[in-house]
Design a protein around this nucleic acid. Structure first.
Length: 298
RNA sequence: GGCGACGUGGCCAAGUGGUUAAGGCGGGGGUCUGCAAAACCCCUAUCGGCAGUUCGAAUCUGCCCGUCGCCU
């Protein structure tokens, strides 16, 4: 695990020279087909050399949820284990990481978009506190745990309670992890990482990110889609709609990526059991990880 | 050397006598189990320096320092 552009993919590919491993992506954007450059997907050559899973699984306009991801990732891991290969989860989406490694029980309630839209409208009309008060009445524990201003979370809790008739808070109890996990967190000095992010954004532009975004938009994918609202796609959309210059859009991509890095760290810091390694000491991290894995298979 | 303008947090920028000095950007921290590269929240200055005027000054006066412009 680790923030964007820290070198996770490179480390995994290097590790693949030492172990028969397969990669399971833990990246919420690489699941979309056709979004290659902006999501920094591993190349076709890299994916030919090392099998990758949970990449390119849906079209950009298909909804893909946490539950979908958990199902796909666990299925991939089972398959890898049957092949007697080592499953290596690689990615920067903290929630996805947790869904796989912590035995998360996700309430079996599919999104009801009409219901959500109605509640969103209420939040706007009556204020988010109104929704939160309703949640407090229906599920006090959830109301305590969820920030009233985090409308999206409040709505999901209401949705689960609405559909199942049972409190959301009682349906989200984690169980023991289904397997033994070693987590290596790759980290890098913030200023250095920001520089690396900026360089990668420039490289993405040179590699044709704008074309990629235009092509997706030409295929009819709305800017409001979750897939099209990711970093890179959103800002270039603003440029294509004439809301800002190309230079401004690229600058925005860089700064939004910085903020994303910060949010990623916030998430990872909270996750237990992560062993942090300095990405600047790539070889050392690689050797150390090799020893850690070998110790598991005497 | 003279004249003029300006000098507010890392940057941009309101405020031109009176509650705890707007806001934006950047930076930092945080929340989040079916939209998570999302959504949301919090933090981040005493106003170039000194001396005055005043009950009270970022806001007025003087000097100094600095920046910019024009002139010689």
């Amino acid at each position: 695990m680790g923030p964007t552009a820290v070198g996770k993919t490179a480390l995994a590919l290097e590790l693949a020279h030492r172990f028969p491993l397969e990669v399971v992506s833990a990246d919420s954007r690489q699941v979309y087909r056709g979004m290659d450059i902006g999501t920094a997907k591993p190349t076709q050559a890299e994916r030919a050399a090392v099998p990758h899973h949970v990449i390119d699984v849906v079209e950009p306009d298909e909804p893909y949820t946490l539950a979908d991801y958990r199902r796909d990732a666990l299925a991939a891991i089972v398959g890898i284990q049957q092949r007697r290969h080592l499953p290596v989860l690689v990615g920067g989406t903290g929630l996805y990481y947790r869904a796989v490694t912590s035995g998360m029980q996700i309430p079996e309630v599919a999104p009801d978009h009409a219901y959500r839209a109605a509640l969103e409208a209420r939040a706007i009309a009556e204020g988010h506190d109104a929704l939160h008060r309703e949640l407090a009445a229906r599920d006090a524990a959830a109301a305590t745990a969820i920030d009233p201003r985090n409308v999206r979370r409040v709505i999901r809790a209401l949705e689960v309670q609405h559909v199942t008739g049972r409190p959301f808070s009682q349906q989200a109890q984690p169980v023991d992890p289904p397997f033994c996990v070693i987590t290596i967190g790759l980290s890098l000095d913030r200023a250095v990482l920001y520089r690396r992010v900026d360089q990668r954004v420039d490289a993405m532009m040179a590699a044709g990110l704008l074309d990629e975004v235009e092509r997706l938009h030409a295929r009819g994918y709305a800017w409001s889609l979750p897939s099209m609202s990711g970093i890179g796609y959103r800002q270039l959309g603003e440029y294509l709609r004439g809301e800002r210059t190309l230079g401004e859009a690229v600058g925005r991509i860089k700064l939004d990526s910085h903020a994303y890095v910060r949010r990623q760290y916030t998430w990872f810091r909270k996750e237990p059991g992560i062993e942090w390694r300095d990405a600047a000491e790539f070889e050392a991290a690689l050797d150390d990880l090799t020893l850690r894995i070998e110790s598991l298979f005497p």
